[in-house]
Amino acid sequence: MFIAEASEKFDLSQDTLRYYERIGLIPRVNRTKSGIRDYTEEDCRWVEFIKCMRGVGLPVEVLIEYVGLFQQGDETKGARKDLLVEQRKELRSRMEDMKNVLERLDDKITRYEMTIAEREKTLHR
């Protein structure tokens, strides 16, 4: 699959895909004899993984480290697992923070709705 197809499939710009490859977020993509990127299923799995992880806010630096560890081979499985466990912990913490903020927003919106409803009742009397 060429870069245009991968771009469309993952809803990422071609520039973003090139950037991900350049900074090491995805391993180097094979190229045709004419130099066009040719994404394999494995490459697509990497793009999908990175898009998913970035979508929930995992830092680029952590993901670059993960990809680098992966490329070093099986002896880094423990380090990769540790890295993912730490990111899961941080994500859970952020989710709890977001839940608290959401509750606060809901409360504030409810109070505004009550105030507005109160004012409309008064105006219609």
Rank of each mutant, 00 (worst) to 15 (best):
E21T: 07
R22T: 12
P27T: 05
P27C: 08
R31G: 11
K33V: 11
S34F: 05
I36K: 09
R37S: 07
D38T: 03
E41L: 11
E41K: 09
E41N: 09
E42D: 13
E42A: 14
D43R: 03
V47R: 10
V47I: 15
E48Q: 14
F49A: 14
C52F: 11
G55Q: 04
G57N: 04
L58H: 01
V62W: 00
V62G: 00
L63D: 01
I64C: 10
E65G: 01
E65A: 06
Y66D: 00
V67A: 09
L69E: 01
L69S: 01
L69T: 02
F70W: 01
Q71C: 06
Q72W: 00
Q72A: 03
Q72T: 03
Q72C: 02
D74T: 08
D74N: 10
T76I: 06
G78V: 03
G78E: 08
K81V: 02
D82M: 04
L83Q: 01
V85R: 05
V85H: 01
R88L: 15
K89Q: 12
E90P: 00
R92T: 09
S93D: 07
M95K: 05
E96F: 02
K99Q: 12
L105W: 06
D106T: 10
D106F: 03
D106E: 15
D107I: 02
I109N: 11
R111Y: 15
Y112A: 14
Y112L: 15
M114E: 14
T115N: 13
T115M: 15
A117F: 09
L123D: 08
H124L: 15
